[in-house]
Design a binder for these strands. Sequence first.
DNA 1: CTTGGTGCAAAGCTTTTGCATATCA
DNA 2: TGATATGCAAAAGCTTTGCACCAAG
Lengths: 131, 131
Amino acid sequence: MLRARGKKVTPQRVLIYRALLGDRTHPTAEQLHARLKELLPGLSLTTVYTALNDLVQAGELRRFEAGDGSVHFDPEMRPHAELVCVQCGRIDDAPVEPASVRMPEEVQGYRILRRTELLHGLCPSCQADPA
Amino acid sequence: MLRARGKKVTPQRVLIYRALLGDRTHPTAEQLHARLKELLPGLSLTTVYTALNDLVQAGELRRFEAGDGSVHFDPEMRPHAELVCVQCGRIDDAPVEPASVRMPEEVQGYRILRRTELLHGLCPSCQADPA
DNA sequence: CTTGGTGCAAAGCTTTTGCATATCA
DNA sequence: TGATATGCAAAAGCTTTGCACCAAG
């Protein structure tokens, strides 16, 4: 996949790509960097940013802004909504309602390329413990 | 409304609030500031930011991130989607599909407080003129 | 060998904050 | 008069950029 795009396969990228594929936590660039530099101490934040941007451009990763100023990455490319806890910041994927699945190709003259749905609320543990 | 919240009525706020009410362009804080300082030359960006944040907190204004890093404000509080042109940055309001209107109160244990729907695409003029 | 990547430090942006002054109630 | 807002400048946070060195193809 990398080679097909004229990119090089480096240890850093392999690590970053692998980490993301199994990740359901919607990390930010910094969160990912914090975790990965324990595995590869020299890993720089710059490299994480470039790798993430590459993946987004290649259509392998979805990038979204959670609504509180933070930018998150999600390897799930099928249509879904993001559940964002306004208290603890936790983010989960939610299946979209059937009606929302058929993304319109055109709305008010706009040609639609992608859709993002954010649901802000309180996650189960923040409801139980409104610290 | 301001007085009800223990706030003072200043010329700056009157100007900012009035400008927003009739605005369908989803301006950013800076765009709004640029326009308004022609009417009130001394107006500072700081004041615009505080006024906008106040309005959002008061529930009079909706704040959303367009997906490209920019933060926009929208006086329309009824449920709707945002049409974002990925080329020129123009933003329009779009009526939501009937199925999306009934916002779920609860999804996967989350208590839902609000919903944001973004549709990214190409606006009519950018389709005609893919500069 | 040649192109592209990495890591560091510095630059860039947007938004917030501290503080003295001015303004509203 | 007393509380709050304003405006400036500085600080803060996140992301990108410039550059020298290194590594993959």
